[in-house]
């Protein structure tokens, strides 16, 4: 097994394209566990943390570009980013312990393609784009189109995600992400839910996005959930309808972390609670 430390995206792409058994190392918090468990045996590990453009958070066209090697902790310390997209930052902040926060990245969380990835529903409702570099150049793809199954991505040969772009925050908008775990920390989401809303001048919800995690092989961006909110003020009736829609949309499995019935119920509960926070944020109340 070789270890490579490219200093440019082009070098990284070349290394990745040259070897089908190559793996990208960002924070390593998933890759190293798999290495140790013998689940993967790459021929070469490509550490992207020496590529300077991948290690920064920068403002771009009113939105934010977050390099693929930026650890969650840095996002959490970035006041302006947090002010615009608190749900995304909070979701990233939920990934593992303080120690994991020092390493784990948004791009890594996305490309690991776990159905339970905390940051993914939050990025999806934020309308985040993943920038992909590959042998044929660069392209931008909606975040929800990256995971294609459990542990699988739509990335082609030689491609890697170089950054995540969070669009400009719409006026009177807010986002939130909540997850359910059995402990208070250190668990994988049993259910996750991201909600983003924008309000019109009358305080009615003019746009909404609702995404559910850990209740299907990949994140669910639910129009039926969003429809329960749009045109309402986010009153109790709307929130109850949202909860029912989220429960209906969830397609979970029984496993060691939860049952189907539990996950469906809790998907509704979290949707309601996350929506309340997002609406409050949109109103500037939180």
């Amino acid at each position: 097994m070789r270890f490579e430390t490219p200093t440019s995206v082009d070098q990284a792409v070349a290394l990745l394209a040259a070897d089908p058994e190559a793996r990208v190392l960002a924070g390593g918090t998933d890759l190293l566990v798999r290495l140790r468990a013998g689940q993967v045996a790459p021929s070469v590990i490509i550490d992207i943390k020496r590529i300077s453009e991948m290690t920064v958070i920068s403002q771009e066209d009113g939105g934010w570009r977050i390099g693929a090697a930026v650890p969650s902790a840095e996002m959490n310390e970035h006041a302006a980013l947090k002010a615009d997209w608190p749900g995304v930052v909070e979701a990233a902040d939920l990934i593992g312990s303080t120690q994991i926060q020092g390493r784990a990245t948004l791009a890594g969380n996305l490309c690991n393609a776990s159905p339970a990835a905390d940051s993914v529903p939050a990025m999806v409702v934020a309308g985040a784009l993943a920038r992909i570099a590959g042998p044929n150049g660069t392209r931008d793809v909606a975040v929800q189109d990256i995971p294609s199954g459990v542990g699988k991505t739509s990335l082609g040969k030689g491609e890697l995600v170089t950054s995540i772009y969070l669009p400009p925050k719409p006026a009177h908008s807010g986002d939130a992400y909540l997850r359910f775990i059995p402990r208070s920390e250190m668990d994988i989401a049993v259910v996750g839910c991201g909600v983003a809303v924008a309000l019109d001048d009358q305080g009615k919800i003019s746009a909404a996005r609702v995404a559910l995690g850990a209740v299907a092989p990949t994140v669910i961006l639910s129009q039926s959930c969003a429809d329960t909110l749009i045109g309402t003020t986010g009153d109790d009736a709307a929130l109850d309808a949202l909860a029912a829609a989220a429960t209906a949309e969830a397609k979970p499995i029984d496993d060691k972390r939860g049952t189907i019935a539990f996950r469906k119920d809790v998907a509704g509960v979290l949707a309601k609670r996350a929506a309340k926070i997002a609406i409050a944020r949109a109103k500037g109340e939180a």
């Binding site: 059995p182 402990r183 208070s184 920390e185 250190m186 668990d187 994988i188 060691k256 972390r257």
Partner: peptide, 28 residues
Amino acid sequence: INEEYIYGDDGRLQNAGFLDYRIPVASD
């Protein structure tokens, strides 16, 4: 509240690690 050995139908232990064998953490 949270700790348990979970066996699958195949008789294999499904949570042989501190991630899913959940001992209390400081914030619990």
